[in-house]
Simulated scan of single mutants.
Amino acid sequence: MEDNKKLQKDFEKKIKPFQPKVPYLKNGFKAYVIGGAICAIGQGISNYFLRVFDLTEATAVSPMIATLILIAALMTGLGFFDRLGQFAGAGALVPVTGFANAIASAALEHRSEGLVLGIGANMFRIAGAVIAFGVVSAYLVGLTRLLVQTLIS
């Protein structure tokens, strides 16, 4: 085991000069700008729903998110979201649009296998873990809050 670790460290030292330098600052700036732009678009859509449909701020959130998901799914289907993701990195993947992209791209990839076994079975392959951990986390946070409120009162 020790020999493997030593070999691994030696290998990493030898290949380090040949690896490209990662522009962390540039990548971070691009992610910040694109992620902020996606959020600003979401805010614009929310403001539109507030003005045109006379919704409250609380009720405008759901249709705004649904609209962003629709836009991201359409962009994925047309091939634009992949290019945006390659350029912006995490800036395009962190908002809800990244989740929509994960589902839509998996569905597109397996559409030739049919609706049920292709799209239905594979659409949530990547996003399923996010959904599962999200539900479990929400349950644990809710349970913790209930316990804390019970202990306090």
Score class of each variant (00 low, 15 high):
Gly36His: 05
Gly36Ile: 04
Ala37Thr: 12
Ala37Ile: 14
Ile38Tyr: 02
Ile38Thr: 02
Cys39Ala: 13
Cys39Asp: 00
Ala40Thr: 13
Gly42Lys: 07
Gly42Asp: 03
Gly42His: 06
Gly44Ala: 06
Ile45Ala: 05
Ile45His: 02
Ser46Ile: 01
Ser46Cys: 08
Asn47Gln: 10
Asn47Trp: 10
Asn47Ala: 12
Tyr48Asp: 01
Tyr48Pro: 00
Phe49Leu: 11
Leu50Val: 10
Leu50Thr: 10
Leu50Asp: 10
Phe53Ile: 03
Phe53Pro: 00
Leu55Lys: 13
Leu55Met: 15
Thr56Met: 02
Thr56Leu: 05
Glu57Ser: 13
Ala58Glu: 11
Ala58Asn: 10
Ala58His: 08
Thr59Glu: 10
Ala60Asn: 05
Pro63Phe: 10
Ile65Ala: 09
Ile65Val: 15
Ala66Gln: 05
Ala66Cys: 13
Thr67Tyr: 02
Leu68Asp: 02
Leu68Cys: 12
Leu68His: 00
Ile69Cys: 13
Ile69Val: 15
Ile69His: 03
Ile69Ser: 03
Leu70Thr: 11
Leu70Gly: 09
Leu70Pro: 01
Leu70Val: 12
Ile71Gly: 03
Ile71Lys: 05
Ala72Gly: 03
Ala72Val: 01
Ala73Phe: 04
Ala73Ser: 11
Ala73Asn: 02
Leu74His: 08
Leu74Val: 15
Met75Tyr: 04
Met75Pro: 01
Thr76Lys: 11
Leu78Met: 14
Leu78Ser: 14
Leu78Trp: 14
Gly79Lys: 09
Phe80Met: 11
Phe81Gln: 15
Phe81Ile: 11
Phe81Lys: 13
Phe81Thr: 11
Arg83Gln: 12
Leu84Ala: 10
Gly85Lys: 09
Gly85Met: 08
Gln86Pro: 00
Ala88His: 07
Gly89Gln: 04
Gly89Cys: 08
Gly91Pro: 02
Leu93His: 14
Leu93Lys: 08
Leu93Asn: 14
Leu93Ala: 14
Val94Tyr: 12
Pro95Asp: 04
Pro95Ser: 05
Pro95Gln: 04
Val96Arg: 07
Val96Cys: 14
Val96Ser: 13
Thr97Trp: 03
Thr97Met: 11
Gly98Asp: 04
Gly98Gln: 06
Gly98Glu: 03
Gly98Ala: 06
Phe99Ala: 13
Phe99Met: 09
Ala100Gln: 06
Ala100Trp: 07
Ala100Asp: 07
Ala100Glu: 07
Asn101His: 15
Ala102Tyr: 10
Ala102Gln: 13
Ala104Arg: 14
Ala104Gln: 15
Ala104Ser: 13
Ser105Glu: 11
Ser105Leu: 07
Ala106Leu: 06
Leu108Tyr: 14
Leu108Ile: 12
Glu109Asp: 14
Glu109Pro: 01
Arg111Asp: 06
Arg111Phe: 09
Ser112Thr: 06
Ser112Trp: 00
Glu113Pro: 00
Gly114Gln: 08
Gly114Lys: 06
Gly114Leu: 08
Leu115Glu: 00
Leu115Gln: 01
Leu115Arg: 00
